[in-house]
């Protein structure tokens, strides 16, 4: 059971940084004045936010390999291309981490976008006026300040992801809910096991809040008014 809690933790710990990095790229594209960049990012964000994570998991885990197999065994031979056919399957851990991070990236992108836009444009101008490049202005001056603003909502999402990670049990990743269910059914103690699972989720979440408060304290700027980013609508 503790091992399973570890798996949940691992899923989250692997997915959240990926989500933030991917989200940052999306946010940067979204803010861009070039349509070629902002459009795909906006579309991605809306599609991901507009469909349930569970459906996304099913699509990636079941539908995509089926499509691939169809391509291999049916479509390609018909146009004269023959590949060595071995049925495609995904590693369920990889799909779990991929889906969680791809899904949360859309939300993190919106948080980061709001965070970046909350920073006074004068900051960028001041950096440029010193001779910094756009890239330096972004990474040395704007991003660190935006980071401070987005920590609370991102920690919020981290905890949400910790709980959402139970969804990947449907593709057989042995995380907390999956194990609780399994052990419970084997020993006919489902109710007890689910209670233990709930307690473990709660413990992990509280750990997340503690981490958030620590980060906020570390990053706070003396003399600065409190800045808040409204959490984009929930999951």
């Amino acid at each position: 059971m503790l091992r399973a809690a570890g798996a949940t933790l691992l899923l989250t710990a692997a997915s959240m940084p990926l989500a933030v990095v991917f989200g940052l790229a999306l946010a940067a594209m979204r803010i861009s004045h070039r349509r070629m960049l902002s459009w795909p990012a906006a579309t991605y964000i809306e599609v991901i936010r507009g469909t349930p994570l569970l459906v996304q998991l099913f699509v990636v885990y079941y539908t995509l390999p089926q499509l691939g197999n169809y391509l291999q065994t049916d479509l390609l031979p018909r146009i004269g291309v023959c590949l060595e056919t071995n049925p495609l399957t995904w590693n369920n851990w990889a799909v779990g981490i991929f889906c969680l991070s791809a899904n949360y990236a859309a939300y993190e992108a919106e948080i980061l976008r709001a965070g970046l836009q909350a920073i006074d444009p004068g900051q960028r101008e001041a950096a440029l006026s010193l001779g910094m490049s756009e890239r330096q202005a972004f990474f040395i001056i704007v991003l660190p300040q935006a980071f401070r603003v987005v920590v609370p909502p991102i920690i919020n999402d981290l905890i949400a992801m910790l709980k959402d990670s139970c969804l990947v049990s449907v593709i057989g990743v042995p995380e907390l809910l999956f194990k609780a269910n399994g052990i419970g059914k084997a020993r006919a103690t489902v109710a007890q096991m689910l209670t233990v699972a709930a307690a473990l989720y709660l413990t992990l979440s509280l750990g997340g809040y503690a981490l958030g408060r620590l980060l906020e304290k570390r990053l706070s700027i003396r003399g600065a008014p409190e800045l808040h980013v409204d959490q984009p609508h929930g999951h």
Binding site: D120, E125, A126, A127, L128, I141, P144, Q145, G223, A224
Partner: peptide, 16 residues
């Protein structure tokens, strides 16, 4: 830009 030093109305110091 290095030839010019600019001072802004609202200071624009880097608060972090």
């Amino acid at each position: 830009r290095r030839h010019f030093g600019m001072v802004f109305q609202r200071f624009n110091l880097f608060p972090h």
